[in-house]
Design a binder for these strands. Structure first.
Lengths: 232, 232
DNA sequence: GTCTATAAACAGATAGAC
DNA sequence: GTCTATCTGTTTATAGAC
């Protein structure tokens, strides 16, 4: 048995399938880079956490830096998939009701999905921490995430905002308002531990997330209403 | 006077005054820890940036970890001074007008000072980045900052909130609402680079800060109004 | 593809001269 | 108080066995 040069059939039972080690390394890197930072994490640590060896990082990514950018690309892909679903659902009811009412529902749905993503998905916390660290120290990894995730998502939200308030999507005011909405949501992801301590919460599960979402949703409603009536 | 063991009078001209090296080290550590993280920064780097040598870190702080906690303490002291001034000014007009109107002005003033601190003070960006990094990786440094700055400031804001809306300061809703206000402000400090890129700004000076403050202030106004009238 | 051994660079801590 | 030299451990990267 066992052709020596067939990588799949000749693999011994203990070996992982093609790409599995690669994926495990990215997963471990995402978590550790997020928790301890790029320089704060050693390749040995990542390899151990991924159940692989140190050499595999050089083999799959060329080195530590290659693993870093590969992790950034993985984040972009992950969020693009989630965002596409969220936008798809947010757009769904827009076919029936055409105007401001539907657009407001769209904003609420997008907000809800953002909030849900940061709480429910186990990867989300790691992603938020990773991106956050990149922000303090501009890198090529951040550029990829900005172009792949940040800018398109922000533009999408600005567009929905325009449909509610009538204010042009690319106006300074609209762009800043959308940032304040994003800021509210991501803050609970960033300052998770501090918030939990102050609130007396033991963890941040569905119940807590729902409570936060309710508050942010009410805020959005109040801001939209004031922008609609007070300053058309 | 002038005993050989008087550390002040016997100091030669080229030497720095007492505590000057110490202060320079803390200042450099604050910036570098914020930018590159604790593990990402070497003691040699800090010493060079401070115009000192590596040995001085061991002498003044016992080691790298000692410098870390000393930096956290410096942050607590800095913010406590600034916060005391801000609260002092916010309280000033409260003597004349007794009720909700004055309390609302107090909240606005506190918000304005927070925003101003994050933009005007050169240290503020470094402080925000430092604290942010600590948040992702709970440490004793974060505990000091939480107890010395975070909790007292949050409680103070909740109290002001109660005076405007009537909702109890320590209720779940009030505490979360205050977090959403803080989140809006700090987000512009955290995501500074990303915001500037999206806004097409070259830097974040007084003009830009005023624009952001105006938006956040309007948001606060809209939220307070909705909480006052809609849900008493 | 996976894993080990090793090399070259760099980390923080320390002892002691000045 | 300041600065240099040095010790010890750890880092990433690499070459090569399997």
């Amino acid at each position: 048995m066992s052709k020596a040069h067939d990588p799949v059939s000749s693999r011994k039972a203990a070996s992982q399938a093609a790409g599995e080690t690669r994926a495990a390394l990215i997963q471990a890197a995402l978590r550790l880079f997020g928790q301890k930072g790029f320089e704060g994490t050693s390749t040995r640590e990542i390899a151990t956490a991924a159940g692989a060896n140190i050499g595999s990082i050089a083999y799959h990514f060329g080195g530590k830096e290659g693993l870093h950018t590969a992790t950034a690309d993985h984040i972009v892909e992950t969020i693009q998939v989630v965002a596409a679903q969220a936008i798809g659902r947010a757009n769904a009811p827009a076919i029936d009701s055409t105007d401001e009412q539907a657009a407001r529902g769209q904003l609420f749905t997008l907000l809800e999905h953002m909030m849900g993503f940061f709480v429910v998905r186990p990867e989300a916390g790691d992603i938020a921490r990773f991106v956050l660290r990149e922000m303090s120290q501009p890198s090529t990894a951040l550029d990829r995430i900005y172009e792949g995730v940040f800018e398109p998502l922000h533009k999408r939200l600005c567009l929905a905002w325009e449909r509610v308030t009538g204010q042009p999507a690319e106006s300074e005011t609209t762009k800043l308002l959308v940032f304040t909405m994003i800021g509210q949501v991501v803050y609970f992801s960033i300052a998770r531990e501090v918030v939990m301590q102050r609130m007396g919460w033991n963890d941040m599960g569905d119940r807590e997330a729902a409570k936060v979402l309710g508050i942010v949703r009410d805020n959005l409603d109040a801001i939209l209403t004031s922008r609609k009536d007070g300053k058309p």
